[in-house]
Design a protein around this nucleic acid. Structure first.
Lengths: 139, 139
DNA sequence: CGGTATCCAAAAGGATACTG
DNA sequence: CAGTATCCTTTTGGATACCG
């Protein structure tokens, strides 16, 4: 359990990154996929219902074709998103969450909701911090 | 509650990113700070105990001074990390989590632990995906 | 020791054009 | 419609050198 908070935990977490030649361990990558800019929005959207490609693109808004494609492919490969391509003309592809994906969405939503709940505290902390840095340097 | 999973949720989530001229909403930024490569490891380390700068650097391993400094400053500004600089020679600076930081660490740890628990399922999905892409294209 | 400042390489991300 | 391929800009991250 390299990611738990107990003694020695982080030393093991280190092995994530330092082992596996290319650079990053698989856990780290999954975490980055689901918390990425578009990954979060894809998960939250698909948690509500399934979407077609362009539909999802409009729903999220501001995402390029390339990034949405890339995000969906990554999450599909991780077993989080299910891709249902119907062999018709014009092409129709539906995206939905797998069971694993719904679990992931729950975790990410918990984090996103925490962020939302505590945003005021963060904003306050930032204001205080910035205050000390501009005015506080005169004492 | 722009981040909840209910109807219309993502449309509101969109406003995160599209409003606030520069690009990204504050919620998005906090989420990126705590889930960033070094942010996660800092939170998990400091959840166990407080650390001095270089001590923390060794604990995490593989992080440059610049990135650790940057990560700690960002999290300090967000009110997540507490910085205690003692005016002595040589300088001594201790880092710990604030109350807000402990909440953040819990959320991040939940996500990290989920990732760890389900890593085998993800690996399996990846293997299946890669299989279909190399061998399956011959039918 | 605990930073800051600068430079540089690598990766992420977006606009556009094209394809089945 | 749902991508793929290419190009280019922005951002990220690390190595190095220096400062209080």
């Amino acid at each position: 359990m390299g990611v738990s908070g107990e003694a020695g935990g982080v030393s093991q977490v280190r092995r994530w990154m330092e082992s596996s030649g290319e650079g990053l361990c698989p856990q780290r990558l999954v975490l980055e996929h689901v918390t990425s800019r578009w990954g979060v929005l894809v998960l939250l959207s698909l948690e509500r219902r399934s979407f077609r490609f362009s539909e999802l693109r409009r729903e999220i808004g501001g995402v390029s074709e390339k990034m949405l494609t890339q995000t969906l492919q990554t999450l599909e490969r991780d077993g989080i998103v299910h891709r249902d391509a119907k062999p018709v003309i014009p092409p129709r592809v539906d995206y939905s969450l797998t069971g694993l994906g719904r679990e992931a969405a729950e975790q990410v939503r918990a984090l996103a909701e925490w962020t939302e709940r505590r945003m005021d505290a963060v904003a306050e902390a930032r204001a205080a911090y910035d205050e000390l840095r501009s005015a506080g340097s005169s004492s």
